[in-house]
């Protein structure tokens, strides 16, 4: 799971709850992580958010495993009360034609709301929607690499018509997030579960690694090998038998041929 969060104060409750450690070294963005989570503090605004999301994507190996991406932060809102958590079901920006509709597959009680990403802090709460400064560019970047069901934006209302931005006390930012932490962590778990449904399991990945190391496969041969390994999995052919057949050969080409030959008799639906 990857978190992209604008402010350190917004991130702190999650860093504490998930026991994330700061990554040392010269990094473009403050980064915290444990074995399963990575949190990047982006700074305020669209450019910072897009940059941090790209940075996080680069570190997350999203190709192998579809890690969810979650943007969390505070936002203004035209109708919801201060402290209310909402999930963005429509994300748009005043300067972009693209509109995002994050597919909502997680069964949750979190309120749904449209969200407009603004260039400057919003002080006009006319419409029933949220106002932030990062979500649109976050979504633009993350959805290029991660399936959209796993890219979500949740916000906590910090200001509205009755308690406008000018009266907002920045010291309560962490408190706003902390109060909603149980719900946020529930969503995190649900998104991780969803991601696992479309991820290859650890055993499959380990088996694939072993198979790939059995010979010097070219890129094209690797593609073919992965396809054959999937076929072998579909027919539950013993892994040891597969690896042995690959290792017995003295070239990548003949190993692929041997594997195809091994699978051939199984190739019929039971």
């Amino acid at each position: 799971m990857n978190f992209i969060i604008a402010l350190q104060a917004e991130a702190k409750p999650l860093i504490d709850a998930l026991k994330l450690k700061k990554v040392s070294g010269s990094l473009p963005f403050p980064t915290f992580q444990n074995d399963n989570h990575q949190l990047v503090v982006s700074g305020i605004g669209k450019i910072a958010s897009a940059g941090a999301t790209g940075f996080s994507l680069g570190k997350s190996h999203a190709q192998d495993h579809p890690f969810p991406f979650l943007n969390i932060g505070i936002a203004g809102h035209g109708s919801l009360g201060v402290g209310t958590l909402f999930i963005a079901d429509r994300i748009f920006s005043e300067n972009h034609s693209s509109i995002y509709y994050p597919p909502q597959l997680v069964d949750s009680e979190i309120i749904r709301s449209p969200l407009q990403t603004c260039e400057l802090p919003n002080r006009d709460y006319q419409e029933k929607k949220g106002y932030d400064m990062e979500a649109h560019s976050f979504y633009t970047t993350a959805s290029k690499c991660v399936t959209r069901e796993l890219v979500q934006v949740i916000k906590i209302v910090s200001d509205n018509l009755h308690q406008p931005l000018d009266t907002f006390n920045p010291k309560v930012v962490s408190k706003l997030v902390e109060t909603n932490l149980p719900t946020i962590l529930g969503l995190v778990r649900s998104l991780e579960k969803l991601a696992n449904e479309i991820s290859p399991d650890r055993e499959t990945l380990a088996f694939r690694r072993d198979a790939l190391h059995s010979q010097n496969f070219t890129e094209t041969q690797t593609h073919l090998l992965v396809q054959l390994l999937n076929h072998s999995k579909s027919f539950d052919i013993e892994e040891a038998k597969i690896l042995q057949s690959l290792k017995n050969e003295n070239s990548a080409k003949s190993a692929l041929k041997a594997l195809a030959h091994l699978i051939e008799p199984y190739r019929i639906l039971s």
């Binding site: 597919p103 290029k144 991660v146 399936t147 069901e149 969803l194 479309i198």
Partner: peptide, 12 residues
């Protein structure tokens, strides 16, 4: 839009 999971969406 590209980058949607037919398999996940099929759940609901």
């Amino acid at each position: 839009p590209r980058g949607q999971s037919f398999r996940l969406q099929k759940k609901n």
